[in-house]
């Protein structure tokens, strides 16, 4: 359930912003996550943005929208983005959308050569 906002872990070290949201990512929860992540991005203007999905229990395609939106923000700062700790189901959605082909987005668990 997404009625309770779960805490988001944030760290900023040596130009690298790491954000670790928790809970479920759906259309409802994505809004608050987006606002908090963007606040961190605009405040810190990192040289690398790492989004850890280790504490995400559920994600639908709204998570994909959240990622694509943050990638667009990162591009304003010429900041590459990296996704870590995605589960198999998330990787399947990423593959379906062709995220592995984006040059400024690194996804742990997916190689750039993957086309499926």
């Amino acid at each position: 359930m997404t009625t309770t906002k779960e805490p988001m872990q944030v760290s900023f070290t040596d130009g690298c912003l790491t954000v670790c949201p928790a809970g479920e990512i759906d259309h409802h929860s994505a809004r608050a996550m987006r606002e908090e992540i963007d606040r961190q991005l605009f405040t810190n203007k990192p040289r690398l943005f790492v989004l850890s999905l280790s504490h995400i229990r559920f994600m639908d395609s709204s998570g994909l929208g959240l990622i694509l939106g943050r990638l667009a923000v990162c591009r304003r700062f010429h900041c590459p983005m990296r996704l870590t700790d995605a589960g198999e189901r998330m990787l399947k959605i990423f593959r379906m959308a062709g995220l592995q082909r984006m040059q400024d987005l690194q996804i742990d668990g997916l190689t750039k050569e993957e086309t499926k």
Partner: peptide, 15 residues
């Protein structure tokens, strides 16, 4: 047009 929706909803359902 906001760039925040992926357009993958039906694809996910199908898959």
């Amino acid at each position: 047009s906001t760039g925040e929706r992926s357009g993958m909803g039906f694809s996910v359902m199908e898959s």
